[in-house]
Amino acid sequence: MSKYQIVISDGFELKYCLKGYGKPIVVVIGSSIYYPRLFSDYLYKKFQFIFLDHRGFVKSSRALNLEDYTLDKVINDIETARQRLKLDQFIILGHSGHAFMAVEYAKQYPDYVQRVVLLNSAPTNSEERQRQSFSFFNETASSERKEHFGKDIVLLEEDIKRDPDRRFVHMCIRMGAQSFYDYTFNAAYMWNDVYTNMPIIDYLWGEAFGNINLIQSLAYVHKPVFIGLGRYDYLVGPVSLWNLIDNSYENVKKVVFEHSGHNPMFEEPHYFDQVLIEWFNETN
């Protein structure tokens, strides 16, 4: 059972969804509509999740300036929601680009964060890292995967021309062959009813996340950290980008899901649930 409510921060109406039961609280930053579709019912019996919008997934109530969508503003939104929900201690989870938000929040507000879960993010979204991921796909993907990707990606331009306000969504759908272990999987239904505020998303993904290196940032996070990566995640791979997370990061547990792309919680739910719960128990 899930329940939607709204917290207002700086004029943005951020929706959040409560789903699951259990004492531990997990705050998943991103879209409160999209992310509940990715986790298993079993996990909702072990944790209560709070799926929280950030302002990149809600309509603006005013004309926006650049200062309206800095990363610090997003972090302030999370803190506003924490205060509204009266959370004293919680786990913060960020998937893909939202991992940058999770780590930045944990750095700025360490007193409230018990643990940090980072899923399927590269250490940075710099242009150089994007080139590395592009080369990883070209050099290691199967010919069948590349062919399927080629057939889908040529349709992206027409998708965007027809519906430019959902450019981010169309891109995510058309890049499925780089996103999923099963490269034929069509994830379009996951994005139903998801609104995207493109100026905010463009800035965060295009600029803010390119100026952060999570490996360096994690040196300032002194809480247990779980990093989950998909072996076939061609969007932010290869997993070797995280090799600098070594024994000096004693608080970090890194797990590679061998039969997953960008969404191991959806692609390998049983194994994902098992290792996440084990990590939680180990660090309790």
Rank of each mutant, 00 (worst) to 15 (best):
M1H: 12
S2L: 08
K3H: 13
Y4S: 15
I6T: 15
I8G: 00
S9V: 01
D10P: 05
D10K: 08
E13P: 07
K15Y: 11
Y16A: 04
C17V: 06
C17W: 02
G22Q: 00
I25W: 02
I25Q: 10
G30M: 04
S32I: 03
F39Q: 00
L43P: 04
L43D: 03
L43R: 01
K45I: 03
K45L: 14
I50D: 03
L52V: 02
L52H: 00
H54N: 15
V58A: 00
K59P: 04
K59D: 08
S60Y: 02
N65L: 08
D68E: 04
T70A: 11
N76G: 15
N76F: 14
D77F: 04
I78Q: 01
I78P: 04
R84I: 01
F90I: 00
I92R: 01
I92C: 03
L93N: 08
G94K: 01
G97Y: 07
G97R: 05
A99R: 00
F100H: 15
M101C: 14
E104G: 04
A106I: 00
A106G: 07
K107W: 01
K107N: 05
D111H: 11
R115N: 14
L119N: 09
S121M: 09
A122E: 05
A122F: 07
A122G: 11
P123V: 13
T124K: 03
T124R: 00
E127H: 09
E128M: 03
R129L: 15
Q130Y: 05
R131V: 13
F137H: 03
E139S: 15
E139Y: 13
T140G: 15
A141K: 01
S143G: 10
E144Q: 09
R145M: 14
K146T: 08
F149M: 09
I153T: 06
I153W: 05
L155M: 12
L156C: 03
E157M: 05
I160T: 03
I160M: 07
I160S: 07
D165T: 06
F168S: 13
F168H: 12
H170D: 02
I173K: 02
I173A: 06
I173M: 06
R174T: 08
M175F: 11
G176E: 00
A177E: 11
A177Q: 09
S179R: 09
D182E: 09
T184Q: 12
F185T: 07
A188I: 08
W191N: 05
V194M: 10
M198A: 06
M198S: 11
I200K: 01
I201R: 13
W205Y: 10
N213R: 02
A219N: 05
V221Q: 01
V221C: 04
K223G: 10
P224K: 08
P224T: 02
I227P: 03
G230A: 12
G230H: 08
R231I: 13
R231E: 15
Y234H: 10
L235N: 14
G237Q: 02
L241Y: 07
L244Y: 09
D246N: 15
S248C: 02
E250W: 09
E250I: 09
N251E: 11
V252A: 10
K254Q: 12
V256Q: 00
E258G: 06
H259S: 14
N263R: 04
M265A: 12
F266I: 06
F266A: 15
E267A: 05
E268K: 00
P269E: 09
H270Y: 12
H270L: 12
Y271H: 13
F272Q: 07
Q274S: 11
L276P: 02
E278D: 13
W279D: 09
